[in-house]
């Protein structure tokens, strides 16, 4: 499905954040990437989503190097992001943000993440942090992309909603045969996902 092969990434020369890591993420499964702050979790997610390019090694989607697929094509067709800081277009409504890249009715997705019809019509800046996070999740859910990359998706949500959203992401992965990769510090997320991966000192370590 999506694979990192001998990937290294350096912000400063000779001090790699990711050091020759390799791992394959499968369809229909959920993954949680854990690790201390600054260990490169978000960087790994960025490499998987072609927001950045590895210093060495390759990211492959269905066996094909994403450099060959093209970054833009990969981001458009293969991955959907849920950012830690939402990254919503401020002058658009919640519904418009969700339907930004897809020709779909955004309302069911917004209702699915617990927003009301009225909230769906509001400009995103008039929504709370938690509500904005839900809009970001709804945008990823609405995408056809087979991979969902979520960076701390429940960080701004209360415990119950966080659990609900995590379950939703897991259900989407299982029911729609998607690969969901979540960067998190939450133990609840670790419990909910199929596979936990620990990132430490630039190396990946799968936990059983």
């Amino acid at each position: 499905m999506i694979e990192v092969r001998n990937v290294s990434y350096e912000y400063i020369k000779n001090s790699p954040v990711l050091d020759d890591i390799s791992m394959t993420f499968e369809r229909g499964k959920t993954y949680a990437i854990f690790g201390p702050s600054g260990c490169g979790k978000t960087t790994l997610l960025s490499l998987l989503g072609a927001l950045d390019a590895p210093t060495s090694g390759a990211v492959l989607f269905d066996g094909k190097d994403i450099a060959q697929i093209g970054d833009e094509n990969h981001r458009k067709d293969n991955v959907a992001f849920i950012f830690q800081n939402y990254n919503l277009i401020e002058y658009m409504t919640a519904a418009e943000n969700v339907s930004l890249t897809e020709k779909i009715d955004p309302l069911p997705y917004l209702l699915q993440v617990g927003l009301t019809e009225d909230e769906a019509k509001r400009p995103v800046l008039k929504l709370s942090g938690g509500q904005q996070q839900r809009v970001a999740i709804a945008r990823a859910l609405a995408s056809d992309a087979p991979v969902i990359l979520a960076d701390e998706p429940t960080g701004n949500l209360d415990e119950d909603t966080a659990a609900e959203i995590t379950k939703l992401l897991c259900d989407v992965a299982h029911e729609n045969n998607k690969c969901v990769i979540i960067v998190s510090h939450s133990a609840a997320v670790a419990e909910a996902v199929d596979q936990v991966v620990r990132l430490s000192h630039g190396k990946l370590q799968e936990e059983v």
Partner: peptide, 13 residues
Amino acid sequence: HEIGILMSLGISK
């Protein structure tokens, strides 16, 4: 910021 978001969503340059 908007350009970054649009690019991350796969909207072409």
